Amino acid sequence: MKSFTGTGVALVTPFRHDLSVDVRSLERLVEYAVAGGVDYLVVLGTTGEPATLTAEEQQLVKDTVIRVNAGRLPLVLGVGGNNTAAVVKALNKEALNGFDAVLSVSPYYNKPTQEGIYKHFEQVALNSPLPVILYNVPGRTGSNMLPETVIRLAEKFGNIIGIKEAAGDLVQAFRLLKGVPDDFMVISGDDMLTLPMTLSGGAGVISVIAQGLPEKFTAMVNAALEGNLEKANALHYDLMDIIDLIFEEGNPAGIKAVLEQLDIVESAEVRLPLVVATSELRSRISRYLQVGTAFT
């Protein structure tokens, strides 16, 4: 579990201008993140746009990341959905080869009860050959996995090792941190709340901005884990503007605009129903990357 303490990166899936998967840009992105000092990589999470990738494209993304990473960092694969039987079917050893854990989102759209969420993850835990990190993101799923449900799962299933908590609610995060077993990881799923959650006992973050500014964001997380509040605060306040910017028009449009301006990816294309960042947002991102501040 120490492998997933620190800074994880929720990788984008780069596209060419014709919207095909851009393998060369993905290769550069992996190398850039590794060189920037992040601790692990998350493949085909929400930021990777798996909902608009074919099965063949998803396999291409997995194969590319595994090949380029070459065992240097732990890898986490997004395996989730709102059809429990389909998620269980996807949790087979062959599909998970090369990965160290799975990140499984709480069922979306169906809006299950807390008991339904528990029963869903019970099946995930019973069928996963790899450790499981839960993912709570009510802004996308339409339902909130409450702390009591997470605590219940954490106490029952030893292979559920943590949660990516992205409710945007610090009080909920504190209740999780207070209630879960000591060896259960509460990982921030919100870049802006990473510092307070980590300082309160969290295990770090699965971040979006860390693939654009890996050295700076990783330094903030490490400072927080080490209890260096002065350094962590300074970095946090420096990063706040760019964190706001990348989510202003949705994810991953903002972070792809950052990566394009840094020449990490060839284009900032996303697939419909997402659209690329506006020229006005791109201009503000450019200003931040050049001088460290955003237009007000």
Rank of each mutant, 00 (worst) to 15 (best):
G212E: 03
S128I: 09
E115H: 02
Q211S: 10
N136M: 04
V65I: 13
S283F: 01
E269I: 05
T198M: 01
P147A: 10
L176V: 03
V150Q: 01
I243D: 06
A210L: 05
R271C: 12
L235I: 15
M220Y: 03
F295M: 14
A234L: 13
G45W: 03
G71I: 06
P131I: 12
G37Y: 08
A101I: 05
N110Y: 08
G204N: 01
A90N: 15
V61F: 04
K93S: 15
L153W: 10
G254D: 10
V270M: 08
N228A: 07
G162P: 02
K156P: 00
Q59W: 10
P112L: 12
V42R: 01
L19C: 12
D182A: 15
E56R: 14
P131E: 00
D169S: 13
G142S: 12
V43D: 02
R67S: 15
S286D: 13
S25N: 08
D100H: 15
A51L: 13
R284Y: 02
N92T: 07
N92H: 15
L289I: 09
A35W: 01
D241R: 06
V42A: 12
A85V: 12
N159E: 05
A210C: 04
L153F: 06
A51C: 13
P214C: 04
H120N: 08
A70V: 00
A125D: 11
A232N: 05
D244K: 11
G158V: 10
N92K: 14
L281K: 06
M1D: 03
G142W: 01
K164A: 01
G48V: 10
N83C: 12
L176Q: 00
N69Q: 02
R175N: 14
L126C: 00
V171E: 15
F99K: 07
T149G: 01
T194Q: 02
E260T: 11
L73G: 05
Q290G: 10
T64S: 10
K2M: 11
A203K: 05
T198L: 04
F15E: 02
N127P: 02
S25W: 01
G142M: 09
T293M: 12
G45S: 06
Q114A: 09
G212R: 07
L195C: 03
V171A: 13
D63P: 04
F184K: 01
V21F: 06
V105E: 06
L262V: 06
D190H: 01
